[in-house]
Design a protein around this nucleic acid. Structure first.
Lengths: 157, 157
DNA sequence: GATTTTATGTCAGACATGTTGACTTATTCT
DNA sequence: AGAATAAGTCAACATGTCTGACATAAAATC
């Protein structure tokens, strides 16, 4: 038989599994809601980040999502054609297509995020403020990209 | 203009984004490693859980992954044919195909998980023991399925 | 012992999401 | 004028997921 795992290894394995199960359950219900519109998780991500950063450019969105523009193009095109996202040429740089949610897009965003907000809110309430602070610390440290960590610094604004 | 988000909403939105960025970065490097074998994230999950629960049945694995058997079948079939997973009929119930990793499978599992273990280890070290305890509490509370939460109760064994 | 349920596998077809590569258009920068 | 940038488009393909239908073997039940 192999030697039993050390306490440390057990701890790390638990961390890995918490992330797996947590993310699986975190995305499950929104996925089901999106399916009713014929959309998938990719649409949710676009709607979420456009809602978060109204007036952002396509390039900025690509930088957050880390997918190719061809992948984005399909999803974004559907959302624009179906009236959830509006594109307007940038005034400073007219090559840009600045993105924002339409009224319908805002409603869908609220609907989708509401579910995740509720889940996170429940978890935060159950776990308590100190645990929340610990959760934030660990998740921030898991995020490898320093630029991404910065999203969370000034974000009390 | 819309009213500014409450502190509580900002907090919840941060939680949502921490999970998005965290999971994206958590899976990014293993995904790249798997691509070299022509495998994807689904293969990783199978290898991981079979390694964690040697001798588990296909039904048990389906219960953890929450995908259909047709989806699993393709991934599992590749892993079996390429000699990473071994199937043996159950002795008690000979309908079952009990799953375990081969020598190659074990090596691949170590290779893949090592990356994630390192990332989690670094995050745990940076954040400190109290933060880790908080992280565990919050993630457990995010996991909706009570049966899944139970994985983590007795898991110090 | 006959019937039903369970565990697993398989085939076929579809869809969502992602990739690479090549090319176009409009605009801005040098 | 020429190079670089922002965005879009077309084509082809890989992966992972799904539904639906059906097959086989073994176990459980009536």
């Amino acid at each position: 038989m192999a030697s039993p795992p050390s306490l440390r290894e057990t701890e790390l394995r638990q961390g890995i599994e918490l992330l797996f199960y947590g993310y699986r359950d975190f995305t499950h219900e929104p996925d089901a809601m999106l399916a009713k519109y014929g959309f998938g998780r990719a649409h949710h991500r676009v709607i979420y980040f456009v809602g978060r950063h109204p007036g952002m450019s396509v390039t900025e969105l690509l930088g957050i999502l880390r997918i190719t523009k061809q992948s984005l193009s399909r999803v974004l095109g559907q959302l624009v054609r179906q009236g959830f996202v509006l594109q307007t040429p940038g005034s400073r740089d007219r090559r840009q297509r600045l993105l924002e949610l339409t009224k319908n897009g805002l409603a869908l965003e609220r609907d989708l995020s509401e579910n995740q907000r509720r889940r996170v809110a429940r978890a935060y309430r159950e776990a308590g403020p100190d645990a929340v602070e610990g959760f934030r610390k660990v998740m921030l440290a898991i995020i490898g990209d320093v630029a991404d960590r910065r999203h969370f610094d000034r974000e009390t604004k």
